[in-house]
Amino acid sequence: MDWVHDIFRNIHVVGGFIGLALFWIPLLSKKGSPLHKKTGKIWVWLARVVLFTAFAGVLMYIPQLQAKGHGLVSHPNSYAFILFLGYLSVITFIITIYAVDVLQHKKDISGLATPYMKLMAWLSILLSGLIVAYALILRPEMMPVLLALSPVGFTTGMGMLSYMGGKESSPRGWLYEHLGSMIGAGIAFHTAFAVFGMTRMFDIGLTGWVAVIPWILPAAIGIPASIIWRRHYQRKFKEIPA
């Protein structure tokens, strides 16, 4: 099965690098333009391939740990990293499909609130809770990272339920949901690159508290950027004072 794992890993790496560059085209291009729509659709499909191969890689690696006698509870350090990758893959997939469905149902939110999409929202919240519990109970070395990034699943799920419940008062709520979700997916892509790609490409060996920086830097930049972007459009549409 090693050759299958290698194929998935190569697809994941190539797709991830392409997606990293492609992400910025729909983000910076004029919203609603042909360029924005076309590159956005390509990125979404590419993201699905990258996320699928990442999650598949996680599933293939777990039996290898078990074969070494590393149990989920007895060796938390062996599992923390791989479990977080699986968590990040699932949450990013949920964010991506939600961002697309928001556009498809921007005129009627009720069409978005399907049992499947609600299940995805609750799954996001559940996974966030499980990661927090794993970090606090078993206390792996990665505990600060797990606790710092695990709320992403909670906030994603709660935001989805709130919007689907009709709690967004702005008529352009679909735009804010779409932009926020896509930026969230982009944060995940850049986090993966910062943690795996950049450190290996440039042979950067970070130790101590500095090693946490690649994990949290994309979120530290992306989340404020998302807030600023939303306020920009709110001012543009005169929903808040300029």
Rank of each mutant, 00 (worst) to 15 (best):
V132R: 05
A133H: 03
A133S: 11
L136V: 08
L138G: 02
R139V: 08
E141G: 06
M142P: 02
M143L: 14
M143R: 11
M143A: 14
P144R: 06
L146H: 01
L147D: 04
A148L: 15
L149A: 07
L149N: 01
P151G: 12
P151A: 14
V152H: 00
F154N: 03
T156F: 02
T156E: 01
G157E: 06
M158Y: 03
M158A: 12
G159A: 07
M160S: 05
M160I: 11
S162F: 08
Y163G: 01
M164K: 08
M164T: 11
G165E: 02
G166T: 11
G166C: 12
K167C: 04
E168C: 06
S169W: 06
S170C: 11
S170I: 10
R172P: 04
R172Y: 05
L175I: 13
Y176S: 03
H178N: 10
G180I: 02
S181M: 07
G184D: 06
A185D: 02
I187T: 10
I187C: 09
F189L: 15
T191Y: 06
T191P: 07
A194P: 11
T199L: 07
R200S: 13
F202Q: 06
F202T: 07
D203V: 12
D203I: 10
G205N: 04
T207W: 02
W209V: 14
W209K: 09
